[in-house]
């Protein structure tokens, strides 16, 4: 049985990819999707009753198609725009998962997303609170939640 935090992260990420990214998030990715190399990482830092980082990883050739879907464009836009689109996905997932974890009265401040195409841009988290992975087209998306402060207030 999946723990509630993981389930809420999965829900927030899946609905964001569906509604904002116009991608079908497959909850049972196949081997080729799982083997695709990570192409971009986005991090959103948050402060509130709990503090930490939401990380979104995109693997395979999805950075261009994601921005193309969002903009209803015929071809992928320029690189900076692709990164902006991906960062906004991370921002939206983060904003949705946090109140789901600690209740709808809680107020959070989110920092603007930081985006890199270097999979090693940031040191790995020492501890991961929740992780969700989806197959998307020929690649995948991974959402990682790291709660650094206040983990004890998360309802289980």
């Amino acid at each position: 049985m999946e723990n509630p935090t993981t389930w809420k992260l999965r829900e927030a990420a899946a609905s964001t990819f569906e509604q904002l990214g116009f991608f079908f998030p497959d909850e049972e990715p196949y081997d080729e999707q799982l083997e695709a190399p990570v192409a971009a990482v986005a991090r959103v830092r948050f402060r509130g009753p709990i503090g930490g980082v939401l990380e979104l990883r995109l693997a395979g050739d999805l950075l261009g198609p994601l921005a193309q879907n969002m903009l209803a464009a015929d071809v992928p836009p320029d690189h900076a725009t692709c990164l902006d689109a991906f960062g906004e996905m991370a921002n939206v997932i983060c904003g949705n998962v946090l109140p789901a974890l600690v209740g709808s009265q809680a107020v959070f401040d989110l920092e603007p997303p930081e985006v890199s195409t270097d999979p090693q841009a940031w040191p790995r988290f020492e501890e991961i609170t929740a992780y969700a992975v989806f197959g998307i087209e020929e690649g995948r998306a991974e959402a990682v939640l790291h709660i650094a402060e206040g983990a004890e207030v998360v309802a289980s």
């Binding site: 569906e18 116009f22 991608f23 079908f24 209803a72």
Partner: peptide
Amino acid sequence: DSFQTGKRNYVTLKKLLWKNG
């Protein structure tokens, strides 16, 4: 429902309609 055909159909339709206004 491992293929989730219904949801795939719907997401594909929404993408097509957004693209075409």
